Amino acid sequence: MSQFTLAAPKKTSLAILAAMAALCGPIAPAQAQTTFDVIGPHEYELPVGFKPFNVFVQYAYVQRNNKAFDDDGDRVKGSGANTTVGLSKYVRFWTPESNPSIGLAYEVIVPEIGVKDRSTSSQVSGIGDPLTGFAIWYKPTPSSTLGFQSFVQIPVGNDSVSDSNWKNLSSLLWDVRLTDKLGWTADAGFVFQNEKKDGSRPGTTFHTNHRLGYRVNGLLEPFVAVDYERSRKSSTVDSSHALDAGVGLMFHTFDNQSITLRYSKSIEGENHSFNNSVNLKYAYVW
């Protein structure tokens, strides 16, 4: 894998950054998907010692809410609504001149959300609660990355799609290039949130996300995905958890662009929506 130098980034390094561009994902509406499950292969394969650059990422997913998990962990009928979400992200990457062995990033994410319920012929849509925050990392070895990220989700979205409360999403992140073709990228962290407008206060959520990808050639990289989250019980909200698995394919299309497709489905859970989604990610570096 080509790496950044202090003089200038190589084009192959830009392709890697386009692949891993996003550093976080917001909590999906109605908890249809687990926290941070938008990540893909190379997500945290981050450089150090580079000149500042920018990344734009557009995520999109379609979730079919035809099933849900009840408090016994059984699969029951869901709402039947279809949720479509877009996530537009801008990220600024840089390295401190005083310490080029550390990398930094600051980003802003704006969700676009639409929910259509065919059973009632109703539909709501709007701009969701935006997120902003930072990440910091270093490379313990040339083939690994270890870092920390923290973001705030601000309840200023449209009333029809806003969660109506403040959130902090903080997690450790890591990436290990196991071989020249095989790589593992992952995170583990917590979501803290305050009371919603309806008086409910969700408990703290723990989450972890894992991607194992194999680069078969210069263009294609199939991968498997595992996502898990567990929320503690609070005085107003029951505890819940979900375990999801998925398969995907990453297209390393151009030196500074990439496209990633993934299908994700829940394996088991409790008091949680059933994930049944198709996910898309496009990343562009300049």
Rank of each mutant, 00 (worst) to 15 (best):
D71L: 11
N256V: 06
T236M: 02
Q257W: 09
W184C: 11
W286H: 12
L17H: 07
G103E: 01
Q58D: 13
I39S: 10
S273M: 01
S266W: 00
A60T: 12
G133N: 06
F251K: 04
T132I: 02
I102V: 15
R177V: 03
N54S: 14
L182Y: 01
Y59G: 13
S170Q: 06
A21H: 07
A135P: 08
V278K: 04
V161W: 09
G86F: 00
V224M: 11
I127V: 14
F56M: 15
A68D: 03
M1W: 07
T132F: 03
E112M: 14
P100C: 09
V216P: 03
K77H: 10
P111H: 06
P142S: 09
E195I: 04
R262I: 04
V55W: 03
N194F: 06
R177E: 15
N158R: 00
M20Q: 13
G213V: 10
G183D: 12
G157E: 01
G40V: 05
D187H: 09
V91A: 14
N279S: 02
S266C: 02
T204L: 04
G126K: 04
A8N: 14
Y284E: 07
V278N: 02
V48E: 05
G246Q: 03
S171L: 05
L46C: 09
L104I: 04
L17C: 05
T253M: 08
Q58R: 11
V161F: 08
A28S: 15
H272A: 11
Y228K: 02
V124P: 08
D180P: 03
A15Y: 07
A30V: 02
D198P: 01
G246T: 07
L17V: 05
A188F: 08
L14N: 02
W94F: 13
V76T: 15
S264W: 00
G218F: 10
R177G: 12
I27T: 11
T12Y: 09
S88A: 15
A188N: 11
V115M: 12
Y59H: 10
I127M: 10
V38E: 05
E270S: 07
W94K: 06
S121V: 08
I154K: 03
T185H: 12
P29C: 04
G114C: 12
K77Y: 09
P9I: 12
V55K: 10
K10C: 10
N194I: 05
T205H: 07
T83W: 07
Y59R: 08
F36P: 01
K196C: 02
M250K: 11
F134S: 11
Y61C: 00
S235A: 15
A19F: 00
A105K: 07
I113T: 11
A32T: 09
S239Q: 14
T34F: 01
E112N: 13
G103P: 04
R177C: 08
N82L: 03
K167G: 13
Q31R: 12
L104G: 03
S264M: 08
F254M: 09
D198V: 00
T83V: 13
Y282F: 15
T132Y: 05
F151V: 07
E229H: 13
A22K: 11
S258P: 08
S88G: 14
K181H: 01
L146P: 02
L131S: 06
D74H: 09
S239M: 08
S277Y: 01
D244Q: 01
N168F: 09
A15L: 10
V110K: 03
S150V: 06
A283T: 14
P29D: 02
N168T: 12
A28P: 07
R177I: 03
D255K: 12
N217M: 09
D175I: 00
W94A: 05
A19S: 14
